[in-house]
Write a protein that binds this DNA or RNA. Structure first.
Lengths: 169, 169
DNA sequence: AAAAAATGCGTGACAAGTCATATATTATCT
DNA sequence: AGATAATATATGACTTGTCACGCATTTTTT
Protein backbone atom coordinates (compact mmCIF):
# COMPACT_ATOMS: atom_id res chain seq x y z
CA UNK A 1 0.00 0.00 0.00
CA UNK A 2 3.01 2.30 -0.38
CA UNK A 3 3.12 2.49 -4.16
CA UNK A 4 1.76 6.03 -4.57
CA UNK A 5 4.75 7.51 -2.78
CA UNK A 6 6.79 7.91 -5.96
CA UNK A 7 4.02 9.70 -7.81
CA UNK A 8 3.36 11.69 -4.67
CA UNK A 9 6.97 12.78 -4.48
CA UNK A 10 6.70 13.92 -8.07
CA UNK A 11 3.65 16.04 -7.33
CA UNK A 12 5.38 17.58 -4.33
CA UNK A 13 8.38 18.51 -6.36
CA UNK A 14 6.20 20.02 -9.07
CA UNK A 15 4.48 22.04 -6.43
CA UNK A 16 7.80 23.30 -5.15
CA UNK A 17 8.81 24.38 -8.64
CA UNK A 18 5.59 26.25 -9.21
CA UNK A 19 5.92 28.08 -5.94
CA UNK A 20 9.37 29.16 -6.98
CA UNK A 21 7.80 31.35 -9.64
CA UNK A 22 5.27 32.90 -7.30
CA UNK A 23 6.25 36.40 -6.25
CA UNK A 24 3.93 36.40 -3.26
CA UNK A 25 5.58 33.38 -1.77
CA UNK A 26 9.13 34.35 -2.68
CA UNK A 27 9.08 37.69 -0.95
CA UNK A 28 8.70 36.46 2.64
CA UNK A 29 11.63 34.10 2.25
CA UNK A 30 13.84 36.75 0.69
CA UNK A 31 12.91 39.22 3.38
CA UNK A 32 13.53 36.73 6.15
CA UNK A 33 16.93 35.90 4.73
CA UNK A 34 17.78 39.57 4.46
CA UNK A 35 16.76 40.28 8.01
CA UNK A 36 18.67 37.31 9.29
CA UNK A 37 21.83 38.27 7.46
CA UNK A 38 21.47 41.80 8.75
CA UNK A 39 21.12 40.59 12.30
CA UNK A 40 24.16 38.38 11.98
CA UNK A 41 26.36 41.01 10.46
CA UNK A 42 25.29 43.50 13.11
CA UNK A 43 25.95 40.97 15.81
CA UNK A 44 29.43 40.48 14.47
CA UNK A 45 29.99 44.20 14.13
CA UNK A 46 29.25 44.97 17.75
CA UNK A 47 25.80 43.84 18.77
CA UNK A 48 23.34 46.43 17.55
CA UNK A 49 19.82 45.40 16.58
CA UNK A 50 18.49 46.24 13.15
CA UNK A 51 16.24 48.96 14.46
CA UNK A 52 19.09 50.49 16.45
CA UNK A 53 21.40 50.45 13.47
CA UNK A 54 18.87 52.18 11.25
CA UNK A 55 18.29 54.89 13.81
CA UNK A 56 21.98 55.56 14.32
CA UNK A 57 22.60 55.61 10.60
CA UNK A 58 19.81 58.04 9.83
CA UNK A 59 20.74 60.39 12.63
CA UNK A 60 24.39 60.27 11.66
CA UNK A 61 23.70 61.06 8.03
CA UNK A 62 20.90 63.55 8.39
CA UNK A 63 21.16 65.00 11.87
CA UNK A 64 18.51 65.27 14.60
CA UNK A 65 14.93 64.60 13.60
CA UNK A 66 11.56 63.65 15.01
CA UNK A 67 10.23 60.15 15.50
CA UNK A 68 7.86 60.71 12.64
CA UNK A 69 10.71 61.60 10.28
CA UNK A 70 12.62 58.52 11.32
CA UNK A 71 9.60 56.33 10.70
CA UNK A 72 9.03 57.85 7.30
CA UNK A 73 12.60 57.46 6.14
CA UNK A 74 12.65 53.88 7.33
CA UNK A 75 9.22 53.15 5.85
CA UNK A 76 8.19 51.61 9.11
CA UNK A 77 5.57 52.09 11.78
CA UNK A 78 6.35 54.75 14.35
CA UNK A 79 5.45 52.33 17.12
CA UNK A 80 8.59 50.40 16.44
CA UNK A 81 10.62 53.50 17.16
CA UNK A 82 8.52 54.48 20.15
CA UNK A 83 9.49 51.19 21.67
CA UNK A 84 13.15 51.11 20.68
CA UNK A 85 14.16 54.66 21.48
CA UNK A 86 13.83 54.63 25.29
CA UNK A 87 16.28 51.74 25.45
CA UNK A 88 18.64 53.57 23.14
CA UNK A 89 18.39 56.57 25.37
CA UNK A 90 19.23 54.41 28.36
CA UNK A 91 22.29 53.16 26.47
CA UNK A 92 23.22 56.80 25.91
CA UNK A 93 23.08 56.44 22.13
CA UNK A 94 20.54 59.21 21.66
CA UNK A 95 18.82 62.03 23.44
CA UNK A 96 15.08 62.60 23.24
CA UNK A 97 13.86 66.12 23.77
CA UNK A 98 10.36 67.43 23.38
CA UNK A 99 10.26 70.11 20.71
CA UNK A 100 9.75 73.53 22.28
CA UNK A 101 7.95 74.83 19.20
CA UNK A 102 5.62 71.84 18.84
CA UNK A 103 4.97 70.05 22.10
CA UNK A 104 3.76 66.89 20.37
CA UNK A 105 7.03 66.14 18.72
CA UNK A 106 10.10 64.52 20.14
CA UNK A 107 13.42 65.34 18.59
CA UNK A 108 15.92 62.51 18.60
CA UNK A 109 19.61 63.35 18.38
CA UNK A 110 22.81 61.37 18.37
CA UNK A 111 25.12 61.56 21.37
CA UNK A 112 28.87 61.14 21.29
CA UNK A 113 28.39 57.54 22.44
CA UNK A 114 25.88 56.95 19.66
CA UNK A 115 28.27 58.44 17.15
CA UNK A 116 31.00 56.08 18.27
CA UNK A 117 28.63 53.11 18.08
CA UNK A 118 27.80 54.12 14.54
CA UNK A 119 31.42 54.49 13.57
CA UNK A 120 32.28 51.10 15.01
CA UNK A 121 29.52 49.39 13.08
CA UNK A 122 29.55 51.27 9.79
CA UNK A 123 32.68 49.74 8.21
CA UNK A 124 31.26 46.23 8.54
CA UNK A 125 27.95 47.28 7.08
CA UNK A 126 29.78 48.92 4.24
CA UNK A 127 31.56 45.67 3.49
CA UNK A 128 28.19 44.06 3.13
CA UNK A 129 26.91 46.68 0.73
CA UNK A 130 30.08 46.36 -1.30
CA UNK A 131 29.69 42.61 -1.46
CA UNK A 132 26.25 43.21 -2.88
CA UNK A 133 27.68 45.58 -5.46
CA UNK A 134 30.04 42.85 -6.54
CA UNK A 135 27.05 40.64 -7.34
CA UNK A 136 24.76 43.17 -8.98
CA UNK A 137 25.57 45.88 -11.48
CA UNK A 138 24.15 49.36 -10.91
CA UNK A 139 21.69 48.74 -13.73
CA UNK A 140 20.50 45.54 -12.14
CA UNK A 141 20.02 47.27 -8.83
CA UNK A 142 18.05 49.99 -10.55
CA UNK A 143 15.87 47.41 -12.28
CA UNK A 144 15.37 45.59 -9.02
CA UNK A 145 14.40 48.73 -7.13
CA UNK A 146 12.09 49.74 -9.93
CA UNK A 147 10.33 46.38 -9.86
CA UNK A 148 10.05 46.59 -6.09
CA UNK A 149 8.58 50.05 -6.47
CA UNK A 150 5.93 48.91 -8.87
CA UNK A 151 5.21 45.81 -6.85
CA UNK A 152 4.87 47.80 -3.67
CA UNK A 153 2.60 50.16 -5.50
CA UNK A 154 0.40 47.27 -6.47
CA UNK A 155 0.46 45.93 -2.93
CA UNK A 156 -0.70 49.19 -1.44
CA UNK A 157 -3.67 49.53 -3.72
CA UNK A 158 -7.02 49.13 -1.95
CA UNK A 159 -8.00 45.53 -2.49
CA UNK A 160 -11.39 46.43 -3.93
CA UNK A 161 -9.65 47.63 -7.06
CA UNK A 162 -9.16 44.03 -8.06
CA UNK A 163 -11.70 42.12 -6.01
CA UNK A 164 -14.63 44.16 -7.33
CA UNK A 165 -17.55 41.96 -6.40
CA UNK A 166 -19.98 44.31 -8.12
CA UNK A 167 -18.51 43.93 -11.54
CA UNK A 168 -18.70 40.18 -11.28
CA UNK A 169 -22.45 40.13 -10.72
CA UNK B 1 17.68 79.82 16.97
CA UNK B 2 15.42 77.99 14.53
CA UNK B 3 17.24 78.85 11.29
CA UNK B 4 18.85 75.43 10.69
CA UNK B 5 15.46 73.78 10.27
CA UNK B 6 15.29 74.45 6.53
CA UNK B 7 18.72 72.98 5.87
CA UNK B 8 17.86 70.17 8.22
CA UNK B 9 14.69 69.40 6.29
CA UNK B 10 16.78 69.24 3.15
CA UNK B 11 19.20 66.75 4.68
CA UNK B 12 16.32 64.62 5.85
CA UNK B 13 14.75 64.55 2.43
CA UNK B 14 18.09 63.66 0.86
CA UNK B 15 18.40 60.86 3.32
CA UNK B 16 14.98 59.58 2.37
CA UNK B 17 15.89 59.59 -1.30
CA UNK B 18 19.08 57.68 -0.73
CA UNK B 19 17.30 55.05 1.29
CA UNK B 20 14.89 54.59 -1.56
CA UNK B 21 17.71 53.09 -3.61
CA UNK B 22 18.83 50.74 -0.87
CA UNK B 23 17.71 47.18 -1.45
CA UNK B 24 18.19 46.19 2.16
CA UNK B 25 15.80 48.81 3.38
CA UNK B 26 13.29 48.42 0.58
CA UNK B 27 12.69 44.74 1.10
CA UNK B 28 11.12 44.90 4.57
CA UNK B 29 8.60 47.50 3.43
CA UNK B 30 7.69 45.56 0.31
CA UNK B 31 7.32 42.39 2.29
CA UNK B 32 5.20 44.08 4.94
CA UNK B 33 2.92 45.49 2.28
CA UNK B 34 2.62 42.10 0.65
CA UNK B 35 1.76 40.39 3.88
CA UNK B 36 -0.76 43.03 4.76
CA UNK B 37 -2.49 42.80 1.42
CA UNK B 38 -2.50 39.03 1.70
CA UNK B 39 -4.08 39.17 5.12
CA UNK B 40 -6.74 41.57 3.94
CA UNK B 41 -7.64 39.61 0.87
CA UNK B 42 -7.82 36.40 2.90
CA UNK B 43 -9.95 38.13 5.48
CA UNK B 44 -12.33 39.18 2.77
CA UNK B 45 -12.30 35.74 1.20
CA UNK B 46 -13.39 33.95 4.32
CA UNK B 47 -11.03 34.51 7.20
CA UNK B 48 -8.05 32.21 6.75
CA UNK B 49 -4.63 33.24 8.00
CA UNK B 50 -1.69 33.31 5.60
CA UNK B 51 -0.16 30.18 7.05
CA UNK B 52 -3.47 28.34 6.84
CA UNK B 53 -4.01 29.37 3.25
CA UNK B 54 -0.58 28.18 2.19
CA UNK B 55 -1.09 24.82 3.85
CA UNK B 56 -4.48 24.26 2.26
CA UNK B 57 -3.19 25.31 -1.13
CA UNK B 58 -0.18 23.02 -1.03
CA UNK B 59 -2.16 20.04 0.17
CA UNK B 60 -4.86 20.66 -2.40
CA UNK B 61 -2.40 20.87 -5.26
CA UNK B 62 0.07 18.21 -4.26
CA UNK B 63 -1.76 15.86 -1.92
CA UNK B 64 -0.77 14.65 1.55
CA UNK B 65 2.74 15.33 2.70
CA UNK B 66 4.89 15.60 5.79
CA UNK B 67 5.50 18.72 7.84
CA UNK B 68 8.98 18.81 6.50
CA UNK B 69 7.76 18.85 2.90
CA UNK B 70 5.35 21.64 3.66
CA UNK B 71 8.10 23.68 5.27
CA UNK B 72 10.38 23.14 2.32
CA UNK B 73 7.83 24.13 -0.29
CA UNK B 74 6.93 27.20 1.67
CA UNK B 75 10.57 28.06 2.35
CA UNK B 76 9.78 28.49 5.99
CA UNK B 77 10.76 27.04 9.33
CA UNK B 78 9.01 23.83 10.38
CA UNK B 79 8.19 25.37 13.74
CA UNK B 80 5.68 27.64 12.13
CA UNK B 81 3.79 24.63 10.85
CA UNK B 82 4.20 22.71 14.07
CA UNK B 83 2.38 25.52 15.74
CA UNK B 84 -0.30 26.15 13.14
CA UNK B 85 -1.31 22.60 12.30
CA UNK B 86 -2.91 21.52 15.59
CA UNK B 87 -5.33 24.44 15.31
CA UNK B 88 -6.10 23.49 11.73
CA UNK B 89 -6.73 19.96 12.86
CA UNK B 90 -9.11 21.26 15.49
CA UNK B 91 -10.94 23.19 12.77
CA UNK B 92 -11.17 19.91 10.84
CA UNK B 93 -9.19 21.30 7.91
CA UNK B 94 -6.53 18.62 8.02
CA UNK B 95 -5.67 15.29 9.57
CA UNK B 96 -2.29 14.54 11.09
CA UNK B 97 -1.17 10.94 11.18
CA UNK B 98 2.16 9.52 12.21
CA UNK B 99 3.79 7.74 9.31
CA UNK B 100 3.82 3.99 9.91
CA UNK B 101 6.97 3.51 7.87
CA UNK B 102 8.96 6.28 9.57
CA UNK B 103 7.78 7.01 13.07
CA UNK B 104 9.38 10.44 13.12
CA UNK B 105 7.26 11.86 10.36
CA UNK B 106 3.74 13.20 10.49
CA UNK B 107 1.69 13.12 7.34
CA UNK B 108 -0.72 15.99 6.88
CA UNK B 109 -3.75 15.51 4.64
CA UNK B 110 -6.70 17.63 3.59
CA UNK B 111 -10.15 16.78 4.89
CA UNK B 112 -13.40 17.44 3.07
CA UNK B 113 -13.85 20.54 5.23
CA UNK B 114 -10.37 21.70 4.35
CA UNK B 115 -11.05 21.14 0.70
CA UNK B 116 -14.18 23.27 0.90
CA UNK B 117 -12.29 26.01 2.74
CA UNK B 118 -9.74 25.98 -0.05
CA UNK B 119 -12.36 26.12 -2.75
CA UNK B 120 -14.10 29.02 -1.06
CA UNK B 121 -10.92 31.03 -0.82
CA UNK B 122 -9.16 30.14 -4.05
CA UNK B 123 -11.21 32.27 -6.50
CA UNK B 124 -10.45 35.44 -4.57
CA UNK B 125 -6.78 34.63 -4.39
CA UNK B 126 -6.80 33.97 -8.08
CA UNK B 127 -8.24 37.41 -8.72
CA UNK B 128 -5.29 38.82 -6.90
CA UNK B 129 -2.77 36.90 -8.93
CA UNK B 130 -4.52 37.98 -12.08
CA UNK B 131 -4.42 41.59 -11.01
CA UNK B 132 -0.67 41.18 -10.62
CA UNK B 133 -0.44 39.72 -14.10
CA UNK B 134 -2.16 42.81 -15.41
CA UNK B 135 0.65 44.93 -13.97
CA UNK B 136 3.64 42.83 -14.87
CA UNK B 137 4.41 41.00 -18.07
CA UNK B 138 5.63 37.40 -17.86
CA UNK B 139 9.11 38.62 -18.78
CA UNK B 140 9.07 41.15 -15.97
CA UNK B 141 7.97 38.51 -13.51
CA UNK B 142 10.75 36.26 -14.70
CA UNK B 143 13.28 39.05 -14.29
CA UNK B 144 11.95 39.84 -10.85
CA UNK B 145 12.07 36.22 -9.71
CA UNK B 146 15.55 35.87 -11.11
CA UNK B 147 16.76 38.93 -9.23
CA UNK B 148 15.12 37.65 -6.06
CA UNK B 149 16.84 34.32 -6.59
CA UNK B 150 20.24 35.88 -6.90
CA UNK B 151 19.60 38.24 -4.01
CA UNK B 152 18.44 35.42 -1.80
CA UNK B 153 21.48 33.48 -2.81
CA UNK B 154 23.65 36.34 -1.68
CA UNK B 155 21.70 36.66 1.55
CA UNK B 156 22.20 33.04 2.45
CA UNK B 157 25.94 33.08 1.97
CA UNK B 158 27.90 32.71 5.21
CA UNK B 159 28.76 36.22 6.24
CA UNK B 160 32.47 35.46 6.50
CA UNK B 161 32.61 35.30 2.73
CA UNK B 162 32.46 39.06 2.65
CA UNK B 163 33.50 40.16 6.10
CA UNK B 164 36.86 38.37 5.91
CA UNK B 165 38.80 40.22 8.54
CA UNK B 166 41.96 38.27 7.74
CA UNK B 167 42.24 39.42 4.16
CA UNK B 168 42.03 43.03 5.25
CA UNK B 169 45.08 42.88 7.48
C1' DA C 1 24.80 -5.55 17.42
C1' DA C 2 26.19 -1.36 19.81
C1' DA C 3 27.50 3.33 19.42
C1' DA C 4 27.28 7.52 16.98
C1' DA C 5 25.22 10.61 13.82
C1' DA C 6 21.41 12.39 11.43
C1' DT C 7 16.51 13.48 10.95
C1' DG C 8 11.71 15.00 12.16
C1' DC C 9 9.04 17.34 15.18
C1' DG C 10 7.60 20.22 19.38
C1' DT C 11 8.39 24.17 22.19
C1' DG C 12 10.29 28.29 24.51
C1' DA C 13 12.29 32.66 23.63
C1' DC C 14 12.97 36.39 20.88
C1' DA C 15 12.94 40.17 16.78
C1' DA C 16 10.47 42.75 13.60
C1' DG C 17 6.43 44.10 11.83
C1' DT C 18 1.48 45.47 11.86
C1' DC C 19 -3.01 47.53 13.72
C1' DA C 20 -6.15 49.88 16.85
C1' DT C 21 -6.84 52.83 20.37
C1' DA C 22 -5.73 56.35 23.88
C1' DT C 23 -3.80 60.84 25.16
C1' DA C 24 -1.75 65.21 24.67
C1' DT C 25 -0.91 68.95 21.82
C1' DT C 26 -1.55 71.95 17.84
C1' DA C 27 -4.31 73.69 13.84
C1' DT C 28 -8.54 74.85 11.73
C1' DC C 29 -13.22 76.30 11.39
C1' DT C 30 -17.12 78.64 12.68
C1' DA D 1 -12.75 82.22 21.79
C1' DG D 2 -14.68 77.58 21.62
C1' DA D 3 -15.57 73.46 19.29
C1' DT D 4 -13.72 70.33 16.07
C1' DA D 5 -10.27 68.12 13.43
C1' DA D 6 -5.66 66.71 12.70
C1' DT D 7 -1.07 65.25 14.27
C1' DA D 8 2.66 63.04 17.22
C1' DT D 9 3.59 59.75 20.32
C1' DA D 10 2.72 55.66 23.52
C1' DT D 11 1.01 51.16 24.36
C1' DG D 12 -1.41 46.61 24.14
C1' DA D 13 -2.40 42.76 21.25
C1' DC D 14 -1.45 40.12 17.40
C1' DT D 15 1.11 37.64 13.23
C1' DT D 16 5.01 36.04 10.86
C1' DG D 17 9.37 34.68 11.09
C1' DT D 18 13.83 32.99 13.23
C1' DC D 19 16.95 30.11 16.36
C1' DA D 20 18.28 26.80 19.85
C1' DC D 21 17.41 22.96 22.38
C1' DG D 22 15.25 18.53 23.65
C1' DC D 23 13.17 14.14 22.62
C1' DA D 24 12.12 10.23 19.88
C1' DT D 25 13.17 7.61 15.94
C1' DT D 26 16.04 6.15 11.94
C1' DT D 27 20.29 5.58 9.61
C1' DT D 28 25.12 5.01 9.41
C1' DT D 29 29.56 3.56 11.36
C1' DT D 30 32.46 0.73 13.58
Amino acid sequence: MKQPSARQAERISQRREREEQNLFSRLPAAYAASRLQGQRVLQRAGGLSIVEWRVLWDLYEAGPMTIRDLAEIQRTDHSQLSRALPAMQKKQFVTMTRDSADGRQIVVALTETGRRAYETTAPTMKLRREALKAEFSPEEIATFVNLLDRFENFLRRPIDTFLERDSVE
